[in-house]
């Protein structure tokens, strides 16, 4: 079981590295799906089977498909790959990578200082999550509902195209 965890972690990290170094947007999204599936395996091994299913359905399903639809709507051509290649050069990469690696090394050092415990609790099924979600966290569920509704309204308002006025008198009046 722990071997599964380490293999899936390695796949997740490698495919995420591939995501952040690709020039073609669609290739990056395919690697992102692989990364999400590997993280779903990690979540399953950690004892969260319901969350693993949600990861596959919502992250690898809905969100990635949404981004793919937008890429299709934008109708990007081959020049965007060349443009990305000119934007993402090696010397841009190095300095942020070094700074982030230093921060990560500090985080790993702090984590390794703590007590060494094993994850040996039994896995938590979806009914326990549901009882907790609609018990003490019900106000969070309601806030999530409000957030989703405002997200729908905001996406509709922002994504709407300006309607063109076809009547010539109104066009004169607009100008």
């Amino acid at each position: 079981m722990e071997l599964t965890f380490y293999i899936a972690s390695a796949i997740a990290v490698l495919s995420t590295i591939m995501v952040i170094t690709r020039y073609n947007m669609v290739h990056a999204l395919i690697y992102l799906i692989i990364s999400f599936l590997a993280i779903a395996i990690v979540l399953f091994v950690l004892g969260a089977p319901f969350i693993a299913a949600l990861e596959v359905i919502i992250y690898a399903g809905a969100i990635v498909v949404l981004i793919i639809f937008v890429i299709m709507m934008l109708n990007l051509r081959d020049e965007t790959v060349e443009q990305e290649r000119s934007w993402l050069t090696k010397d841009i990469f190095i300095f942020p990578a070094i700074l982030s690696a230093i921060l990560l090394a500090e985080v790993i050092y702090i984590i390794s200082l703590g007590e060494h415990t094993m994850l040996d609790q039994p896995s938590i099924d979806s009914s326990a999550v549901g009882m907790s979600l609609y018990g003490p966290y019900v106000i969070g569920v309601e806030l999530c509902g409000i957030l989703l509704m405002s997200g729908i309204v905001g996406a509709y308002h922002l994504g709407r195209q300006k309607k063109k006025i076809v009547h010539r008198f109104l066009e004169h009046a607009e100008q």
């Binding site: 079981m1 990690v42 091994v45 004892g47 790993i108 060494h116 094993m118 040996d120």
Partner: peptide, 14 residues
């Protein structure tokens, strides 16, 4: 059955 240290999961997230 599961003998994964907590640090491994947190380091993966990091």
């Amino acid at each position: 059955m599961k003998a994964i240290p907590v640090e491994a999961g947190l380091i993966l997230a990091g």
